[in-house]
């Protein structure tokens, strides 16, 4: 899949789609976006830290974030999207999406689109942006071969649980942890 097949608002195909009530532009991230994406990704990781001490953010997380984003932007099996504001927030990156396609050697369908991170700045929440972003990300993952879409988030994050449950997601795998 080439970058030109990635989603941008408004969506070109699929059924009738509700647009977010706040105007945004969704586009594939470029290497040049990394400096703007890193702080957003770190905000999300710090939010995750609130849910569990085993999600403590590393001291070098900033450098890691830049590296991971750069690598995934170049990776054809990954989806990294930038949410841009319009109007007063034109050209400002107000959200980030990170997802990838993972093999499922034992299960059907054989490829799974995993949403690792969706982060939106607070003023872009609860206005349909998340819904739109999720739909477009799912579509991007589908075009990369995924037959199922999954989302990973901290077990205690009830806001994420509700967000995904409302949109037809159910828990299929649980990850339990204890420190060693």
């Amino acid at each position: 899949m080439t970058a030109s097949n990635e989603p941008s608002a408004p969506p070109a195909k699929g059924g009738p789609k509700e647009s977010p009530s706040v105007p945004i532009r969704l586009r594939p991230a470029r290497a040049a976006d990394v400096p703007a994406l890193v702080p957003l990704l770190l905000r999300l990781k710090r939010l995750n830290e609130e849910f569990d001490p085993l999600l403590k953010v590393r001291d070098d997380a900033e450098a890691q974030a830049a590296q991971v984003l750069k690598a995934q932007i170049a990776d054809p099996k990954a989806v990294v999207l930038a949410v841009e504001g319009v109007g007063a927030d034109k050209d400002k990156v107000v959200g980030v999406v990170r997802a990838l396609v993972r093999e499922r050697p034992f299960y059907a369908p054989p490829q799974e689109g995993v949403i690792l991170d969706i982060y939106l700045l607070p003023l872009y929440r609860r206005r349909g942006v998340g819904e739109f972003v999720l739909r477009e990300t799912s579509e991007a993952l589908r075009t990369k071969g995924a037959g199922v879409v999954t989302a990973e988030f901290p077990a205690q994050n009830e806001i994420a649980q509700r967000f995904y449950a409302k949109r037809g997601f159910r828990p299929i795998t649980e990850i339990h942890a204890r420190p060693l």
């Binding site: 905000r43 999300l44 939010l47 609130e50 700045l121 607070p122 003023l123 806001i159």
Partner: peptide, 22 residues
């Protein structure tokens, strides 16, 4: 403000303050 560093933490710990921040 809506983009202060601790705003996500407020969303979880003090949604009333969070809403007013937004």
């Amino acid at each position: 403000s809506a983009e202060r560093d601790d705003v996500d933490e407020l969303m979880l710990r003090n949604p009333w303050k969070y809403r007013l921040a937004l």
